[in-house]
């Protein structure tokens, strides 16, 4: 299993976190695509160019292969200050 954590508006759509079974060689892009099937609002919002992803606390591209026990963070466009 990998843990996926949703922040900001994504947590409203998907809940804060969940554990997801990871197949051999599955890429982050596929994982996000599968999650998008659950919620149309998330599916739309996650496509925004300023959305970022982190794997094990480092920003990571969608091509990243997700492994067992990885922690994936799904990060909406940052909006501090």
């Amino acid at each position: 299993m990998a843990k996926v954590v949703f922040y900001g508006r994504f947590a409203d759509f998907m809940g804060r976190e969940r554990d997801i079974a990871v197949g051999e060689g599955v890429r982050l892009e596929t994982m996000i695509s599968d999650l998008s099937k659950e919620n149309d609002a998330f599916a739309d919002a996650v496509k925004a160019p300023a959305v970022k992803f982190a794997v094990n606390n480092a920003v990571a591209p969608l091509s990243t292969v997700i492994k067992e026990k990885d922690e994936v963070a799904v990060l909406p466009p940052f909006s501090g200050g």
């Binding site: 900001g8 300023a50 940052f78 909006s79 501090g80 200050g81």
Partner: peptide, 22 residues
Amino acid sequence: LKTDAPFWKKQICRSGEEWIEP
């Protein structure tokens, strides 16, 4: 801090709540 730090702001108004985009 406005655009590159991982913070997310939700505006809480009398009429409801809304996440703020940069």
